[in-house]
């Protein structure tokens, strides 16, 4: 199109020069020059846009840099915390089970022994002396049962509480998933920009409203968190609670 116009213009220019029509020739020369300039402006425009896109890419780059510098190591710490929380819960549960198994076995054995003796008593096969000793054994068994069952109850409570890890680790893992998602978005955006197929839009980072579980070594660095219940109680009592 431009070439066609240029060709027409050139032909007209040659014609004007041949005719010795200088005024027309000047006008035509100006037209040709203007066309050249237009192309130059277009090129400058294209370069400007490219520069703009690159700049946007740079800011995205710095976001990824900050992610690799801060968020990824943070995420690693958080996942380590998940490992230690689950390990702690498993140990707490296993300890309770290991402690309670022999208690329950012992009670079971005692009950079995006493019940066979009791059967003999019901069948009137038991001499009085043995009955007396069985009575003592039964009394002893009752006492021991009370203590042992209390121990079982405490152990079951330990097991129950140990399950709290699921809530804490669930929250921590969710945070890491959010980070991975953010990182993925930034990478996709970066690829889009370097592919130069679309205009750059800054990926929105979702700001976490609530800081959630305190991961030791990550969230307690600034010293603005309560590390345990005592810290909470101290703070509240300082507020007159």
């Amino acid at each position: 199109m431009t070439n066609e116009i240029s060709l027409t213009l050139a032909k007209e220019l040659v014609f004007a020069l041949e005719q010795g029509n200088e005024a027309d020739a000047d006008v035509l020369l100006d037209k040709i020059a203007a066309q050249k300039e237009g192309q130059l402006f277009k090129e400058v425009g294209r370069l400007t846009r490219q520069l703009h896109d690159s700049m946007a890419g740079f800011s995205l780059d710095s976001k990824i840099t900050s992610m690799t510098e801060n968020d990824i190591p943070d995420a690693k710490e958080r996942l380590h915390y998940v490992i230690s929380m689950t390990e702690q819960a498993a140990n707490q549960t296993l300890n309770a089970v290991e402690e309670l198994m022999p208690v329950s076995k012992k009670l079971n054995d005692q009950a079995a022994k006493l019940s066979s003796k009791w059967d003999r008593f019901l069948d009137r096969e038991m001499p009085f002396e043995e009955f007396k000793s069985m009575s003592e054994e039964i009394a002893l068994h009752f006492n021991e049962s009370k203590e042992s069952l209390l121990q079982v109850q405490n152990g079951l409570n330990d097991i129950l509480l140990a399950q709290g890890f699921q809530d804490i680790t669930g929250q921590v893992i969710k945070r890491v998933i959010d980070l991975v998602q953010d990182l993925e978005l930034s990478m996709v955006e970066l690829i889009r920009i370097s592919g130069n197929t679309a205009t750059a839009t800054t990926a929105e980072t979702k700001e976490l409203e609530l800081p959630g579980p305190v991961v030791p070594g990550v969230d307690d660095k600034a010293g603005d968190v309560a590390k345990n219940q005592d810290d909470v109680d101290d703070l509240l009592s300082s507020l007159g609670f």
């Binding site: 509480l161 709290g164 890890f165 809530d167 804490i168 929250q171 609530l210 800081p211 959630g212 579980p213 305190v214 603005d224 968190v225 309560a226 590390k227 345990n228 219940q229 810290d231 909470v232 703070l235 509240l236 507020l239 609670f241």
Partner: peptide, 23 residues
């Protein structure tokens, strides 16, 4: 599990009667 000091203060100001942190 929220354990920021400012959060505990916020809860106290909102009228909480007790605050226990997990775990």
């Amino acid at each position: 599990a929220e354990a920021k000091r400012e959060q505990i203060i916020m809860a106290a100001q909102a009228g909480v009667n007790g605050y226990v942190i997990k775990p």
